[in-house]
């Protein structure tokens, strides 16, 4: 799935990005906001993102898939806590 947006100069592939991030062991849903990929990880995956190598890998994957920015949201209700997904959930 590609996500064109205002001012787009690139083709972004959110589905492929979410799958690639999942292969790093980071389970999350992914919300696309233009060039920003917003990750909503399950609680158990937050720790993985504390590792610099994992963050670098996520950033590199995001660039490969056409995103300029990646952010992580950790809502107060711990959205996704205890909900270990087998496949990434996409939202837009």
């Amino acid at each position: 799935m590609t996500q064109p947006d205002r001012g787009d100069r690139t083709t972004r592939n959110a589905t492929a990005l979410a799958a690639a991030i999942a292969r790093l062991g980071v389970q999350c849903s992914l919300e696309v906001r233009g060039g920003l990929a917003l990750l909503l990880p399950v609680t158990s995956s937050v720790e993985a993102l504390q590792a610099p190598d994992t963050r670098r890998a996520v950033l590199a994957l995001a660039r490969e898939h056409g995103f300029t920015h990646v952010a992580i949201e950790l809502p107060s209700d711990r959205r996704g806590a205890g909900r270990e997904t087998d496949a990434p959930l996409l939202r837009d």
Binding site: R9, G34, G35, E73
Partner: peptide, 18 residues
């Protein structure tokens, strides 16, 4: 609220808009 995984970069929104 979200945290940018790359961290601070000057002109970040210029990058976002190309």
């Amino acid at each position: 609220v979200s945290l940018d995984l790359r961290g601070f970069r000057s002109g970040s929104l210029n990058v976002l808009h190309g």
